Amino acid sequence: MSLLSARGLHVTFPGRRGAPPARAVDGVDLDIGAGEIVALVGESGCGKTTLARSLLGLVRPTAGAVAFDGQPLGYSSGALRAYRKRAQLVLQDPSGSLNPRHTVYDAVAEGLRIHGIHRSERDERTAVAEALARAGLRPPERFFLRYPHELSGGQRQRVVIAGALVLEPELIVADEPVASLDASVRGEILALLLRLRDELGLSALVVTHDLGLAWNIADRVAVMYLGRVVETGTVESVLTRPQHPYTRALLSVLPESEGAPVVLTGEPPDPSRIPSGCRFHARCQLLASGEATPVADRCRGEDLPVLPGGGERSVACHWVTTA
């Protein structure tokens, strides 16, 4: 049974000044198993952050349902409070996540206090020290009285991770966890997430635009475009044998890829103007080159089903399914 699952998830935001509503998430099934790391990848504006926030209960879906450990997610204040102790968010900007007026100790202990986990001062100190040590800040007592401006970017991100770990969650949702860090530090943070999975059995959803990051950390990958997952499967199957033309385009710009990068034409994704048929058809390099001419009418007019949320390899593409 999946630890976290979404079924038929939709998130729609009202349009401005009479504009059509924005369908940020437009039908998604997604499963995350216990101890599994799933990478959710796609370019900016594809809806991946909105999907992640809806999975955490921070954005209430317009339709569909989220379940955690087999139980439907409730949206009362009490239900969300209990859920957010078990599922924690790690944001991409550690500087923005930390109050500059709070010490490292207070930043990590804040979760314990918010959730009313009553501990003696000694127990709280022990819990904070253990969380900092697990996040790789050793000896932890050395960091207690420091402020965020006294830390490096990598150390600040570790403090944010420690603030999540202090509540002993079962799931971490990391939104671009290394995007703001120097290249020399990114590997350390990714190695930390893998170690936490191995030592604590943590599950994780890692939201990223970087397929190289997904390759290094994920067990499974879901590629998202314009509000919907268009390709999913194990990281090896998707990233070594990409089938959807959008996935191929994303992979083509990696330094280690062979051949010329694929330059996508047309307008970038607009969730208020989702086209009929395949939502990628206006920018598809296979249609533009004529390779997909036999299925061109289907691409432009026939909708594709929502992909299953489990681990099986799936692709939402008329050309792939008929080839």
Rank of each mutant, 00 (worst) to 15 (best):
R53G: 01
S97A: 15
E150Y: 06
L213W: 04
P140R: 05
L51S: 09
A82E: 12
S77M: 07
R134N: 07
T265V: 12
G227P: 09
R186Y: 01
P72H: 03
V166L: 02
L251Q: 08
A323I: 06
P268M: 00
R228T: 15
G310D: 15
T62A: 05
S152P: 08
I172R: 08
S120F: 02
E110W: 04
D175F: 06
M224I: 10
L211F: 08
G70L: 03
H118C: 02
S5L: 03
D106K: 15
A65F: 00
R186E: 02
A79P: 13
L239D: 01
Q155C: 11
T265N: 07
H244L: 03
E43T: 13
L304P: 10
L200F: 12
D198A: 15
I117E: 12
F68L: 09
E312S: 14
S314M: 09
Y225W: 05
I189H: 04
L226W: 03
V173F: 04
A87V: 13
A214P: 13
T322E: 14
A22I: 08
A34Y: 05
A34K: 14
E199G: 08
L192I: 10
E231W: 02
G64V: 08
S152A: 08
R60G: 01
L304M: 05
P100Y: 01
V104M: 07
L307R: 12
I217F: 08
